[in-house]
Design a protein around this nucleic acid. Structure first.
Length: 745
DNA sequence: AATTTATAG
DNA sequence: CTCTATAAATT
């Protein structure tokens, strides 16, 4: 499937236009990075052992929740019991997660915690996670960093890559002066790429490739077949460990591998790989953790790629490799197809690989999966426009406990509530170190009675600068009382509560927190309680509604409404502010799952420029221009000229030239002015991009092996203890930069 | 505000 | 697939 011929040429606009900064840009570069066996590495580090060599597992009660790669070689897997693991590897180092004990002020590594008295704590891992995220934030100043989980994050490297390309090829900032197509002039042929050290490349079709890295993953997998020959296995594994072990695959040197880039897309991905390599090295240097990464044109493919070579490897998936790779991939490995949706599809068509489903039409898909169909259809073809959302802070935090034995009395309830309250308190406090103004608008108490379904009770939660566990507990107990209190208050114990959870939601970085906070006080002012208003008077005057409705609306439009796409963003969060979405809804909705929004909105955006998979894409860069609504809304439609706020240049409507396939019935000088403005802004964009100094990604000599690390001096700024403030400023600055680019200057 | 659903280690 | 966490839709 050599569809190169069909592919739309990559133009200057794609490289240089702020307006082209959308999910369809062929130079889009996304990465998913995850910490290898995260908890195991974290614990190993804490204990001063090398988790790549020492078989180690993290245990939670009697189960294992993380297995070091060294331990995996013994065939030990997640969800295995401690006993079973010891059988497979008698010398395995087992570490129990930290726990909160009654009366303690914080989670600790207790000797032998019991589920009857302790509560598991993942706090230490969240802390490490934050450190890692901070490094990414620091080193990806131009792109969004989205924390996907405690050990995974996405980053959008598109801008950083553009910057690198423009630094290396300054002449690309402007199309040739005499080019009639202007920004729509195709870029010159792409340069060569030195793949040395950039990671494993998923083989492109036809061409048999060698891995630039070791074959660690293969070795790692190899031992996974256990059964009766456990002894031999242990033996062989030991030898293996003694012999070589963990090559620092991504860092080792391999014979130079220089190739002509198949396209600028490939070159861009290679640049992304350089960046990720450096960040991974930085994380290794500062924190000592290995990570695996995928570098690809979108989130789905980046995630798949990251899983291909582990641990400590990064994988690059270029367009030319997508088709062959997806063809035989079990489709249920695709993100979000691993659950019920995937099962439903598998059952309906009795297929298992992505390629198997290529023959299913969109219409057929719609019949069975309704609103998700477009997303599914696209993702099966390697297309995924979901944006990387700048988000490193959580919106909710929940501390839950499966209580054994079940709670039967108020005293027992209070005991667990105090522990859960403490944990929430600790976590909120730590979250505030990063976002000082963050506070939860709501507190939620969830509980599960034996044999029933979960229930919950919630109420608004007041802002308190110096939050104490007791304060949290007061609210929690009130909720408890409302929920089940009466039944057991008088000592008569009824229902058995087997799960109790306490959480915060509506966690918002008070950007303009002041206002919000004031609003809270003024609206509920009443409670004349000085410092700890509502809390002191726990029961009666708790504010009913902090109604963050306006804030949500605001968030939806301000932040996400823009998306990366200028017109139809598909943020994970926002579902309502859908743009024009008339048709999509009518189809029967078999699933009605929470994925719909995500899918359908992402799908909405057609992606003619998508370099991915079998897309016989059709040309129409035109959309890029229509993407700039800004000038139209902010200026009088009839305005014959526009003055650049940046340089005061007076811009006149663009002359009639170029714009193939776009020759509408002219007359709209407005449109041409908008174009001219866009071009002008693009120019600023390019210039600024060239000026900007990327701390992380320094251009390395044309083709040589990765050049020296960016001098620490250049990026030092923050990082030290007082990280709180520093990282905040950093983030603000970053947002400013991003906004600048999004608005086109 | 309450409840349910989906997903993922 | 023990438990824990998160996001979001529905009502």
């Amino acid at each position: 499937m050599s569809h190169d011929a069909h592919r739309v040429p990559i133009t200057f606009r794609h490289l240089v236009s702020a307006g082209s900064l959308n999910a369809s840009n062929p130079l889009r570069v996304i990465s998913l990075v995850d910490v290898d066996a995260a908890y195991a590495q974290f614990e190993a580090s804490r204990l001063g052992v090398d988790s790549s060599v020492v078989p180690l597992a993290v245990q939670q009660w009697n189960g294992l929740i993380a297995i070091s790669y060294a331990a995996r070689k013994f065939g030990i897997t997640r969800h295995e019991t401690v006993e079973s693991a010891k059988e497979k590897c008698p010398e395995i180092r087992l570490v129990h997660v930290a726990t909160y004990a009654e009366g303690a002020q914080r989670a600790e590594y207790n000797e032998d915690p019991s589920p009857t008295t302790h509560k598991v704590s993942l706090d230490p891992y969240r802390r490490e996670s934050r450190k890692i995220v901070a490094i990414f934030d620091e080193m990806c100043p131009l792109g969004a960093v989205e924390k996907a989980s405690i050990d995974e994050l996405y980053c959008d490297l598109t801008l950083a890559v553009r910057q690198v390309i423009l630094q290396r090829f300054p002449e690309l900032a402007r199309p040739p002066a005499n080019s009639p197509l202007g920004l729509d002039t195709p870029l010159p042929p792409p340069p060569k790429i030195d793949w040395t050290d950039l990671g494993y490349r998923v083989p492109t079709e036809g061409a048999h490739q060698e891995s630039a890295e070791g074959d660690d993953a293969k070795d790692a997998q190899e031992a996974d077949k256990q059964a009766s020959r456990q002894e031999e296995l242990q033996e062989s594994v030991r030898e293996e460990i003694a012999a070589d072990t963990f090559k620092t695959a991504a860092i080792n040197s391999s014979p130079p591998l220089v190739q002509q880039a198949a396209s600028w897309t490939d070159y861009a991905l290679a640049c992304g790989a350089e960046l990720i390599l450096k960040i991974r090295q930085e994380v290794m240097d500062r924190l000592g953790y290995t990570m695996s990464a995928g570098i690809a044109p979108n989130k789905t493919l980046a995630k798949l790629s990251a899983g291909m070579k582990k641990p400590n490897c990064q994988t690059i998936l270029v367009p030319g490799a997508i088709h062959a790779y997806l063809k035989d991939l079990p489709f249920q490995k695709i993100r979000f197809l691993g659950g019920k949706l995937g099962d439903a599809i598998a059952k309906e068509w009795e297929r298992s690989t992505v390629g198997d489903l290529w023959s299913v039409t969109l219409a057929e898909l719609q019949e069975k999966v309704g609103d998700e169909s477009k997303w599914v259809y696209d993702v099966l073809r390697g297309i995924d426009h979901t944006p990387v959302i700048e988000r490193t802070a959580n919106k909710t935090m929940l501390a839950s406990k499966n209580v054994k034995p079940p709670i039967r009395t108020l005293q027992e309830a209070q005991r667990w509530i105090s522990i859960l309250s403490l944990e929430l308190c600790v976590r909120l406090k730590e979250a505030r170190e990063e976002s000082p103004n963050i506070w939860p608008s709501t507190m939620v108490l969830r509980y599960l009675k034996a044999g029933e379904t979960a229930r919950s009770r919630q109420s608004s939660f007041p802002f308190v600068r110096d939050l104490k566990p007791e304060s949290v507990a007061v609210v929690a107990e009130r909720l408890w009382g409302e929920a089940v209190g009466e039944q057991m208050s008088s000592g008569k114990q009824l229902s058995e509560i087997i799960v109790i959870a306490l959480g915060f939601s509506g966690l918002e970085a008070g950007e303009q927190g002041q206002r919000s906070i004031e609003g809270f006080f003024t609206s509920k002012a009443a409670a004349s309680n000085a410092k700890v208003p509502a809390l002191a008077a726990a029961s009666p005057p708790i504010p009913q509604t902090i109604s963050s409705k306006r804030e949500r609306a605001l968030e939806g439009e301000t932040m996400e409404g823009k998306g990366e796409d200028g017109r139809s963003p598909s943020p994970l969060g926002v579902v309502n502010g859908t743009i024009g979405e008339p048709s999509a809804k009518k189809i029967k909705k078999v699933k009605a799952s929470g994925l719909q929004s995500l899918f359908q909105k992402a799908a909405e955006v057609t992606s003619p420029l998508q370099p991915e998979a079998a897309q016989p894409s059709v040309a129409q860069d035109a959309s890029l221009d229509s993407v700039s609504p800004a000038p139209l809304t902010e200026e009088a439609p009839s305005m014959p000229s526009w003055t650049c706020p940046e340089c005061q240049a007076k811009i006149l409507p663009r002359a009639h030239v170029g714009e193939p396939g776009r020759a509408e019935e002219g007359e709209d000088s407005d449109r041409r002015l908008a174009q001219a403005k866009q071009d002008h802004e693009d120019w600023h964009f390019a210039v600024n991009l060239q000026k900007e100094h990327s701390a992380a990604l320094q251009p390395r000599g044309s083709l040589g092996p990765s050049a020296s690390q960016a001098p620490a001096s250049q990026r030092s700024a923050s990082q030290k203890g007082g990280g709180g403030k520093g990282s905040k400023d950093k983030k603000a600055n970053k947002n400013a930069i991003q906004n600048f680019f999004k608005k086109g200057g």
